[in-house]
Write a protein that binds this DNA or RNA. Structure first.
Lengths: 127, 127
DNA sequence: TTACGCTTTAGAGCGCGCTCTAACGCAAGC
DNA sequence: GCTTGCGTTAGAGCGCGCTCTAAAGCGTAA
């Protein structure tokens, strides 16, 4: 389980581009990536798991700045576990709120679709 | 029920800025807004309802270009009802997909929080 | 030995959805 | 008649999150 991956491999495994992977490293979302003797990045399974978690945060709408905070806490080690937990709990609440909002609006859109269906049948009966 | 509203009133009723309202009109999301004798916009209840629907579409992640398509169809009248319905149905499916994705990821985040809680108690027992 | 394919970096550019600025108009109140 | 406050326009600027470019290095294959 001590696999090492090139940037290209990580790109195809995660769906991020190599550009984005380097960019995330530059802004501090990904840290301490090893290099081989020619200076190429070597990602570990550990890095990969972290990147996949970052993607979850992104997909659920966490802003980069907050991801950065989380990443910084993570680097500081075990003393920041509570802080990290709190940050995630806050985000979790945001996500639940977002789901609720989407559900409400999805419902309204459904109603509009039903309304159009009614109009459609009315049209047909007229012609 | 033939209320007329100034741009400022519509802004405070919808939460959009006056800038955004003019911008939406410029790019064709809002059409045919009446003007008074001095050239000021006068929004009707009908306009207001449309703006609120636009906001739903936006909140649920519909891109502007698609909102524009929808707005264009709407302007063409009753013959586009089926097309509008289809567009909304497609968007509705997208929204349900997004909700599912959020739920999946929310669950993973929940697991991570639980994991941190475990680590926390472990820490306390050591010290 | 030269071409190919992968990598590196710094830094520029881009697309979306606003957001703001500048310059101006009108109309009511002091 | 001048200020205040609302509105108008065209067009520039901005912040986020990438996305791409240019110039260069290294290693294998023909």
């Amino acid at each position: 389980m001590k696999n090492l991956f090139s940037i290209q491999q990580v790109a195809s495994m995660t769906g991020l581009s190599t550009h984005t992977l380097r960019y995330y490293e530059k802004i501090g979302l990904i840290k301490n990536v090893q290099r081989d003797q020619t200076g190429y990045r070597q990602y570990t399974d550990f890095d990969l798991a972290w990147i996949q978690f970052l993607i979850r945060l992104r997909v659920t709408g966490m802003p980069m700045l907050k991801m950065k905070q989380f990443s910084d806490l993570r680097q500081k080690g075990d003393s920041t576990i509570t802080a990290r937990k709190e940050l995630l709990k806050e985000h979790y609440k945001d996500v639940l709120g977002k789901i609720e909002e989407l559900e409400l609006n999805a419902h309204r859109i459904e109603e509009k679709i039903a309304h159009y269906k009614k109009l459609e049948t009315a049209e047909k009966q007229h012609s």
